[in-house]
């Protein structure tokens, strides 16, 4: 068999080009940290990586929603805690007011009670960082609670909307609306709301009559708020658990992704060395072989 000189050279050069291409790919993999440079190199792995990335993005969004909601619920929990403190103080005032005290003392007690009522109203009107009412349901552009100019009673202005938690609609509750937080206080005479209870108490305190009855309702209000706080605490705990689960899922996704997407540096290093050696050998053998011509001897 006779190998034409041109073909010999071309074959050698082609194989050297091939080796150089391989080395270049290894170099790019090393520098970019990507195992797959073109999707067509490994479509199956490519689509799997993309799928994992999309799942991770969804997970991140859902987790972010949980964290956001957790923060909002934290505000609700804090608000409830402070509200409970106010009611506790009102109960103390009730005890003081139920004794034989001077009219000045009664007036002082009433004034403090009114201040506490205002403080509770401020708490019920807590706004988020953008100034939107937190407890007005969906009507966040309104003050959640405002005094009815006709009756002088503080009334709920919002609606019964409760925001859904995106991505976690069926499993996680969001901030409650003020109507539910401060309404639905169950007393012996039926359902009432916090500000009606407070209004009645202040009237009783001011007049010195009916304080005992008002005190009972304050107890009911305190119990109601405690229940709400417990509910919020439970919701937050559930969210924390879910966030923990999400973290686990994220780790699992990362673990699935890494072997598909990340090159093993040691393997690449070895391949690089092998490639360099092969190329060097090819180049040297080419030089030596091409030099072995009959003409050299003839000359």
């Amino acid at each position: 068999m006779q190998i034409p000189t041109r073909q010999f050279a071309e074959t050698q050069l082609r194989s050297m080009s091939s080796l150089q291409r391989e080395l270049q790919d290894i170099q790019i993999q090393l520098s970019t940290g990507k195992k797959i440079l073109h999707a067509s190199d490994n479509p199956t792995a490519s689509i799997e990586i993309a799928r994992i990335d999309n799942q991770a993005a969804v997970l991140a969004r859902d987790k972010n929603a949980l964290q956001f909601t957790n923060g909002r619920l934290g505000l609700e929990e804090d608000m409830l805690g402070e509200s409970i403190s106010i009611v506790q103080r009102l109960k103390e005032l009730a005890i003081l007011g139920n004794r034989q005290i001077t009219s000045q003392d009664r007036a002082n007690l009433t004034a403090e009670a009114r201040q506490l009522e205002g403080a509770l109203e401020d708490l019920a009107n807590t706004a988020d960082e953008s100034g939107h009412s937190l407890f007005a349901g969906f009507r966040t552009n309104l003050r959640a609670f405002a005094e009815n100019p006709d009756t002088g009673v503080v009334e709920y202005q919002g609606d019964s909307g409760t925001p859904v938690v995106p991505g976690n609609e069926d499993t996680t509750r969001s901030v409650d609306h003020g109507g539910r937080i401060f309404g639905g206080v169950r007393t012996r005479t039926g359902l009432t709301d916090a500000f009606t209870v407070l209004g009645a108490f202040i009237t009783a305190l001011d007049s010195g009559t009916g304080i005992a009855d008002a005190q009972v309702k304050l107890d009911a209000l305190a119990e109601h708020l405690n229940t709400k706080q417990t509910e919020v605490g439970a919701a937050r705990a559930a969210i924390q658990t879910r966030i923990g689960l999400f973290a686990g899922k994220e780790s699992a996704l990362a673990a699935r992704r890494e072997p598909l997407a990340k090159p093993v540096i040691e393997q690449l290093g070895t391949k690089l060395q092998q490639g360099i050696a092969a190329l060097t050998a090819a180049q040297q053998s080419f030089i030596k072989t091409i030099d072995l011509t009959l003409f050299k001897f003839l000359s």
Binding site: R61, S133, G137, P166
Partner: peptide, 13 residues
């Protein structure tokens, strides 16, 4: 209802 997010959640979903 500026605070109503039900439809936005559907968009996200």
């Amino acid at each position: 209802r500026p605070g109503d997010n039900r439809n936005a959640a559907e968009l996200a979903a």
